[in-house]
Amino acid sequence: MEPRTPSKLEKIMAAGHLGVTSEVGPPRGADGAEIEHKGHLIKDYVDAVNVTDNQTSVVRLCSLASCIRLKQMGIEPVLQMTTRDRNRIAMQSDILGAASFGIHNMLCLTGDHQTFGDHPMSANVFDLDSVQLIQTVKLMRDEGKLLSGFEMKVRPQIFIGAAENPFAGPNVELRALRLGKKIAAGAEFIQTQCIYNIPKFKEWMKIAVDKGYTDKAYIMAGITPFKSLGMARYMKTKVPGMDVPDNLIDRLKGVPKEKQAEEGIKMAIEMIQELKEVPGVRGFHIMAIEWEEKVPELVKGGGLYPRPQV
């Protein structure tokens, strides 16, 4: 696949390297320095940094402003955008704003329902869904048009990303078909949900490879290390669409509490090593939730360091 945008992430994967991204969750306040701090921790170990968009529907400093901050630090951002809070007018406007600052990656999401967050009483929007947001970015970039048909003089240049959860319902076949749908809509890279159930992930990847989806988009495997047994249990029981097999819980149970974080990192590194060998995997998306300082260790341990220069 030839790169079509100035995105460094795209160029790295197009050159055949495994891409590495991580994410920064903005603060629940106006502290821009926190984003810079988190950015500094990981910048030399990843190709691009995702910034979440009010994740779990909790109000946080906005993704667009955070991405601009990262960009100004010389870090390549991935603008996450959910369709939950903004209609097509606001989203297209934000895409243009992002492009005007040289933001060249986006992750198009529908977003968690607002009942999860700190404003469950709010109205939701969902004018578009994630697939339609992908279509929108593609239309803007490739045809230079807004959804209204208006032709722009300057087009946004954006490497189009989407998420997919191989472990959600109804079954792995449907989840693979939905991946195909996102790729058909225009997604060029996919960051998956956190992977814990490797056999199921391989099943999903096999369908993706067989259907030729992996020839059209880069699949980046989602990795989230467990910080503790408590976190693993929480992910298993409380987070929608998360599939944590019992053997991983048992492994954490088998080590003393103070060693669980270390064991969690070890498990994540083993997963990276194993997933690197899965056909169709073209990179990793490391989501070390409120544990950004561990990203360098994971990247090094996974044999993904140093990052290629393109």
């Binding site: 939701n124 969902f126 869904d129 697939v131 959600a168 319902g169 449907l174 949900q193």
Partner: peptide, 16 residues
């Protein structure tokens, strides 16, 4: 719940 036209989303689990 998200009036999606291209569902199901990643939060769909065991039919719920």
């Amino acid at each position: 719940s998200k009036r999606m036209l291209n569902g199901p989303c990643g939060g769909s689990e065991a039919g719920k």
